[in-house]
Design a protein around this nucleic acid. Structure first.
Lengths: 196, 196
DNA sequence: TTATAAAATGAACGAATATTCGTTTATTTT
DNA sequence: AAAATAAACGAATATTCGTTCATTTTATAA
């Protein structure tokens, strides 16, 4: 009984994401993908049920990895400032290390495909829930709706990342996301979220 | 010399955006679009050079309308709090009135197509630049990098909108973007951006 | 070494793709 | 009302699409 070639599956996954990031979902055809991965088109169907399944598997894996990375070293018992900063750093680390994965992820999230792929983030959600509740209990975080917290704490972070990744930035053509910029933004967010 | 039928072009534009929002860029074929708009496929090529041109024209128009709406009633001389709040309301008004346009807009922005379509937002940029500088001069806004300002002032707003439009919200399944929520978030943003 | 089972392939499938072409239709100008 | 012109169309084009299938190759268990 011959085993599946792990490298082949990885090649399929990586090339597929590269092609999607380069040319959009239109740009990914099974035949072109096969050529890019140096295999036959029919081989792809040994590793994935069909095109839709391939796309979903890609998203699920990236999503899972991304949220795992975000939680690395994280504990709901951390102080509010420490915990949030850790997550910012974790997220940025992933984005910088795997920009293709991240861009694929964002593209997928903003496409209608997202509706057909169900996501499981219960571990992540639970962590964040406890983290927020603990911070409120300790008086480090203002009492507020979870969506308000989330919008401020992460919306601003992702806006920064977007400026960083886009060549044509809204305000400044040559924007670079330095540690200083990130820390300054972070401090302002903390200020906003503090009680009273 | 027969004139072009304005309604026909509008039908093409609207149906195209609907199809893209429903099924992604894959979902838009010229023949299906023609059927949806009750015309012949070849007629589309009278109004648009080709498929790519159609997509670009759609984006450019929505982008222009959106930034015009955002500036409605706006003046760079407005106080910081008034001016920012006006923009938030303007933006939300557009999003709620034309959700399909907005979702198409976001989808396009997050796709590689954005790189092939050049955008002209000089009027908008100029307004915002003066607005921010005036607010700093009057001491209503902390001195900071434009990207930090932008990330906080709009990143959090768009994160709220995202929660609102997504069925499966990250934190709360049944999140509704009420006036109260928006005003609360806005107040926190103002707090963050204030000097000292 | 042989048997076996799954991986891997290339050829082939019909359906769908964007675009073009020759012709017809509708509208405006003379 | 006739002439002129571009809109509008239906049919046809050559490709490309995702997927299937019969066959061959290859790694492993016996």
């Amino acid at each position: 009984m011959r085993k599946k070639d792990e490298n082949k599956e990885i090649a399929i996954r990586e090339k597929a994401m590269e092609m999607i990031v380069m040319d959009g979902f239109d740009g990914l055809s099974m035949q072109k993908l096969a050529k890019a991965a140096n295999i036959s088109a029919s081989t792809i169907y040994i590793y994935f049920k069909n095109r839709e399944d391939l796309l979903n598997q890609l998203f699920i894996q990236v999503q899972q990895t991304f949220s795992d990375v975000a939680l690395a070293g994280f504990s709901p018992e951390l102080s509010f400032e420490e915990g949030l900063w850790l997550q910012w750093k974790n997220r940025l680390r992933f984005i910088l290390k795997y920009p293709v994965h991240y861009q694929f992820y964002e593209q997928f999230r903003n496409s209608p495909l997202i509706n057909h792929s169900d996501i499981n983030l219960s571990v992540f959600k639970n962590n964040m829930k406890h983290f927020v509740l603990n911070a409120i209990r300790r008086g480090e975080l203002a009492r507020m709706e979870p969506e308000i917290f989330w919008s401020l704490a992460y919306g601003s972070f992702y806006a920064l990342v977007r400026f960083h990744l886009n060549e044509k930035s809204m305000m400044n053509e040559n924007f670079k996301l330095t540690d200083t910029i990130m820390k300054q933004t972070f401090k302002l967010v903390i200020k906003a979220l503090q009680p009273e």
